[in-house]
Nucleic acid binder design. Structure first.
Lengths: 168, 168
DNA sequence: CAAATCGTTCAGTCCATATTGAACGTTCCG
DNA sequence: CGGAACGTTCAATATGGACTGAACGATTTG
């Protein structure tokens, strides 16, 4: 039977795919968002019916993107992952970095344009400037968020179903 | 020979591909950015050595994304496209729309969560709220930009090389 | 009205990447 | 110190989307 939670996880996968990322990464994020408490790779693999390789790869991807936190509970063999308070804040950070990264090579290219293409050079420089300013703006928004919520603590602080004994 | 302009166009293609989009769309944007004045599909196809089908498809994609404007100069058979003043502003608009669009199905899913998963519901709602607020913030930034620059008029207003007679 | 040119659509091909199963190194338990 | 469990890496496969060439409809020109 498919519960509303399953539907949500499925949607998260589609959204991730829509955004040009791996579908499974979105599903894992959705799963951890629903669970709240840390979950091991084995649990993810079983719940989402994927290979452990995929679980490992995508969980680490989410960790790099800053959406998820790797935890090592005492008395637990395997690594576990837990969703952060504001998973999407990291998306913004990634976005800002990408915008800024796009601006640099553009501006560098423009510097090489000969004087016969001065107007093109100006256009490209405008373009790069826009990217840079937007990246600045993203980071401003991020700072505002961090000031409002404090830093990225685990969501719910493990208040829900911390016992790993449950098989399903 | 590869000019600095060609290098820039190539980079724009790679950036577009990096962002999960068609490479040719980025190349077209770079080409129109360099040219400034309107260019027809045939000109794009020849300059970038791509099929007319790709030129048509990707140019329309850029138009939907709002990076490019379709113009119909008098005395010209084919449609022509021209880069807008702030092509990346439209990227922001798209981004805001996507963030907002991601928030909606998440919130809808959360509403279906049974009371046994009240905490999960709260987490998902927080997640959706974050997306919504970020979308709001993007649009605020857009408004600020529009106020600063006026609306998206064609870049350079066709001041550069408007004659379509040049073969290359 | 005939002929040509242009933009779009569509089926087919190709390419990138997500995903997997198996092998490997490591760490922990007995 | 042997054995097992775990996470990671790697080659191979499968899936999705980009790109193309040809066909079609529409519009214009002579």
């Amino acid at each position: 039977m498919t519960t509303p939670m399953d539907t949500f996880i499925e949607q998260m996968g589609l959204i991730a795919q829509n955004d040009g990322g791996p579908r499974i990464a979105g599903q894992i994020l959705g799963y951890l968002l629903v669970e709240g408490a840390p979950r091991t790779l084995s649990q993810m693999a079983e719940a989402l019916q994927i290979s452990k390789a995929s679980a490992s790869t995508n969980a680490r991807l989410l960790e790099v993107k800053g959406a998820v936190r790797r935890v090592s509970p005492i008395g637990q063999r395997g690594d576990a992952y837990q969703v952060l308070d504001r998973p999407s804040a990291s998306v913004l950070e990634t976005l800002a970095g990408r915008f800024r990264g796009n601006a640099v090579p553009s501006a560098r290219s423009a510097a090489d344009f000969p004087d016969s293409h001065a107007e093109a050079r100006a256009r490209v420089n405008d373009y790069a400037t826009f990217y840079r300013e937007t990246a600045d703006f993203f980071e401003e928004w991020l700072e505002r968020l961090n000031r409002a919520c404090g830093d990225g603590a685990p969501h719910g602080s493990g208040a829900e179903t911390p016992e790993p004994g449950a098989k399903e």
